[in-house]
Design a binder for these strands. Structure first.
Length: 270
DNA sequence: GCCACTGTTAGCAT
DNA sequence: CATGCTAACAGTGG
């Protein structure tokens, strides 16, 4: 997500929207389906991210909020490039041979146009927890007080902490040597310290590698990331643990596959 | 063909 | 409230 924003931001800033095509109307979640018309003539001011939402700020006090869900893709590419089958939305720009495309195989993705001045107070953003990289250690500890939910569930809970998905939750827990089913409140200072550090380091490494490209995930220019080559547990069931050689195990939690090393990530007080 | 699985989460049940 | 499971959808691979 962050990798997409970073690749997109310098390309989009300053461009003036000349037209758009909404190929799959349910993508747009606004009550008023005509709101997109207001975009025409507006210039793009900034591209930013909050949690897993991509926010494109435009003139006229308009912000486009994209959620990619499972299979959403944002691509900034030459108009002449053939449309992918699942293209749902296209924005064209004045004097520009490239356009912005939103593709989404499973149709879970969403787009909401909100006034920039209200975006921070919008329901979408207000319900989000803190950005993990902006938390100091003591605020991080506070989050876990009185939380009986399992660590993996907490990391995935966007109202607990924003922006962490299935891959990074597993990778973070492995690097912190914590079992995914450990209740949050069981953690004491040393374990919390490891988890805080691991969160920072895992996300920082993933960003440095420009994200994980499994299947066809890429940045907004179609370029793949490399972090999948550094995954220690995700997708590595029954392969040896890089640290101890034990076979990586897998369990299901809330419908999500969860990978971990049973030897390095011992369950606390079962 | 059938079944399991998929960078997610809203909505519902407990 | 907090927590956990299921469904929404379309495609892929065994």
């Amino acid at each position: 997500m962050e990798t997409i924003v970073r690749s997109l931001s310098p390309r989009l800033q300053g461009l003036r929207i000349s037209s758009f095509q909404l190929l799959f109307p349910p993508l747009l979640r606004n009550e008023n389906k005509d709101v997109l018309e207001e975009l025409v003539g507006a210039r793009i001011l900034a591209v930013r991210r909050r949690g897993k939402l991509i926010l494109i700020d435009c003139e006229k006090n308009l912000t486009l909020c994209f959620h990619l869900k499972m299979t959403g893709r944002i691509l900034f590419c030459p108009k002449q490039e053939p449309l992918e089958k699942h293209t749902r939305f296209i924005i064209s720009f004045e004097d520009k041979k490239q356009e912005l495309r939103f593709g989404d195989v499973r149709k879970f993705g969403s787009l909401l146009l909100v006034p920039t001045s209200e975006v921070l107070e919008s329901e979408e953003l207000r319900s989000l927890g803190p950005e993990p990289l902006e938390l100091d250690f003591s605020s991080f500890c506070q989050l876990f007080k009185g939380r009986s939910a399992r660590l993996k569930s907490l990391l995935l809970d966007q109202s607990f902490v924003a922006g962490i998905g299935n891959i990074y939750a597993d990778e973070i827990l492995f690097r912190a040597r914590l079992h995914p089913l450990t209740p949050g409140s069981f953690l004491r200072k040393p374990a919390l310290r490891r988890l805080w550090q691991s969160t920072r380091e895992t996300l920082a490494s993933a960003l440095a590698a420009r994200g994980s490209s499994i299947r066809d995930y890429t940045d907004a220019l179609g370029k793949e990331g490399n972090f999948q080559n550094f995954h220690q547990v995700y997708g590595r069931e029954s392969l040896p643990c890089s640290s101890c050689g034990e076979k990586i195990a897998r369990l299901r939690l809330g419908g999500r596959s969860t990978f971990f090393c049973p030897r390095c990530q011992k369950r606390k007080r079962p």
